[in-house]
Amino acid sequence: MRKNGVNMIKISAKNVDVFYGKKQALFNINLDIEENQVTALIGPSGCGKSTFLRCLNRMNDVIDICKVQGEIVINDFNINDKGCDVVRLREKIGMVFQKPNPFPKTLYENISYGPTIHGMAQSKQEMDEIVETSLKKAALWEEVKDRLHEPGTGLSGGQQQRLCIARAISVQPEVILMDEPCSALDPIATAQIEELIDELKKEHTIIIVTHSMAQAARVSQRTGFFHLGELIEHGSTDKIFKNPDNIKTQDYITGRFG
């Protein structure tokens, strides 16, 4: 998919403003996300990076008072258009949340949930296959293959989060959004997830919100820095971490505030 050494643009946000009631949370965000890359969004707490992430699959619809303005174009299609179908959009853009949130059902049902509602499997056999490949991709298969029909809430935190990732990739989304996926996990589980992210980027475009700059540096190719609802700077991870243009970015990176 390479074109003249530059990656294809998968998502491009233009002039995005977000309001919570009367309070403006995001100011005029312009950001392009490249295909099959990991893009990290960093910044201090409350800077709006999670809000921006939730704009990308319209999860902000769930919050009554939240209003999004501007254009977010995915596959030449503005998702903030009235005609946009949220259900179809979310099928293409999966999400992994901060706290692992497996459904209170069996492991199998957790994975098969998405394919079932989207009618992706015609038979039980096909469904078994989907469940297996998803779990394998999420590097969870070996650990759980003998207890697929036990409740998903019985797993450890790290396993639960990988289960959620498996659930997200079961519908073969083009983009996976990750909202601080490792913040509730211990370092070993975190390392496993990070490895997984590296693997997943071959087939999916990944956007990850993270608190940890080290994590951003480890997993991402591109980075955007948010501060007080504004996108201060974005570019390749190398450049942001080694040679940022903006003084605020530098201060944050070097730990002077945030």
Binding site: V86, F97, P104, K105
Partner: peptide, 26 residues
């Protein structure tokens, strides 16, 4: 918890599917 709803919506489920298959069993 809201997180269960979010999880289901993020999978592209409609509201009634979320209610019938996730919230109601929970």
């Amino acid at each position: 918890p809201q997180s269960l709803r979010d999880g289901s919506y993020a999978m592209g489920a409609t509201k009634s599917e979320t209610i019938k298959k996730v919230i109601f069993p929970a």
